[in-house]
Design a protein around this nucleic acid. Structure first.
Lengths: 244, 244
DNA sequence: CGCCTCTTTGAACATGGTCAAATAACGTGG
DNA sequence: CCACGTTATTTGACCATGTTCAAAGAGGCG
């Protein structure tokens, strides 16, 4: 079944700047099986050696681990268009779990397709590699965020990142976006306690940096929010590439 | 000049399990210029578009960023054999800085060599990709470490990781290793204050989990240390690959 | 309406941070 | 080899940020 929603990941790969119209055509022609998944379901567990590569088409998923202490740490957010487990093709086994945070539609890309793409489509291969490297850039920024920013700036920074990333997949407005994550999820992303996240959200609201209610996040003044947390979107590597 | 020290990165890539003797021969034949660098020197700055890819031959370097607040966060340690900036070939510009932590020897791999390798040596290409993905696994574990472990376990975990990684490049003994990082460096890795790192080190010493003096770290009981911090080396992807 | 989940609030506590100063280790030149 | 300046580690006292536990409200949904 050709699914129009796969436009999301084509657009994502296209951001690498490597694809030609021919490549996009190839990607559009892929026949992928899709799967509807509820919120808070595991897609892949640590140690798995999955046969298919999963791609998020709609919804939000995440990479996470459970620490010895039984606490969840989310290490990456997977938005529409993002690949869940490309690395497994190279590394062999998963070193973390992947689960949905919201109800999602997931596409399954058979290993055979990946093998074909990486063998016969050099630019698509580069785009795939680009995607994994861009992910890495984000996790580095999260380290800075957790290590060197106080909770309020850290939270604001996450919102700036989400806003920017959702914009590129057409899921945000210039001044806000649908925010389906719960406060517990935010706390597991930020490495904070849920209670503290709640208080920080209160502060950000009080400072009129955000408005958040009924799952809508409104950013009254994006520039102010970005300045507040020192957000510099460079690490997302979203700028149009004109140099190759 | 063929430099024997490039054995370090060949060994590193070999851990991917993808290389054949022919590939190793190819890598051994590379003519690389090397450079001696003092401790605490920048090799690459944020925004750079370096022409050569750098490889650490001896010493320890790191990826880092300086936050708005002027505080350094180290996001990765680069040990002998590690590539500094492979991603730049794909992403276009650096989103972080790279600098040495100790006196180091750095090899410069001209872009032309990388292009040749990735065009004509499929297994070496996969090994390179493997290396970047393994790095990513480490930064994910660091997120867990910072987000969900108290400072003492976090510090212990870093030592376990360092020990294991240094073992694979022949720079550690079964019960310890040379620890050239200062406490400030540790604090910038762990996202803690230098003072607190000092106190944590004291605790770990008091609990007889480590002995640390004159730049030698001794681990009296590795198993105990690993249990203490929940260290599971899985994420390093160092296990011998027999499945392909 | 009633249940369940999520958010909000309060009070006491703990972990880690800051500032400042003392001590120890290191490297260099005499 | 020692003295000195420099850099790194250690210690103390006080403070701030974030955590925990518990309970009360709000919202969403059948």
């Amino acid at each position: 079944m050709v699914d129009l929603r796969q436009g999301t990941f084509i657009r994502k790969l296209d951001q690498s700047g490597f694809l030609t119209e021919e490549d996009r055509e190839t990607l559009r022609g892929l026949q992928l099986r899709t799967r509807d998944v509820d919120a808070r379901q595991d897609l892949i567990l640590e140690g798995d050696r999955p046969e298919n590569v999963l791609v998020v088409l709609t919804g939000i998923a995440c990479r996470y681990k459970i620490s010895e202490g039984g606490r969840r740490q989310i290490m990456a957010l997977l938005l529409p268009g993002d690949f869940c487990d490309l690395h497994v093709a190279i590394l062999g086994h998963m070193d973390h779990c992947i689960g949905t945070l919201t109800p999602s539609v997931i596409a399954e890309m058979p290993r055979a397709i990946i093998d074909d793409l990486t063998a016969n489509h050099i630019r698509i291969t580069r785009a795939l590699w680009w995607a994994t490297l861009a992910d890495e850039g984000i996790s580095r920024e999260w380290l800075v965020n957790m290590g060197r920013r106080p909770a309020d700036q850290q939270t604001a920074h996450l919102f700036c990142e989400l806003h920017r990333r959702l914009l590129t997949v057409g899921l945000a407005m210039p001044d806000g976006f649908e925010m389906p994550l719960r406060q517990v999820d935010l706390s597991d992303i930020l490495g904070l306690s849920p209670v503290h996240v709640n208080r920080v959200l209160g502060e950000l609201r009080a400072a009129n940096l955000i408005a958040l209610s009924r799952r809508k996040l409104v950013i009254p003044n994006l520039d102010r929010l970005q300045k507040f947390c020192g957000f510099n979107p460079n690490y997302l590597h979203l700028t149009p590439r004109i140099d190759r």
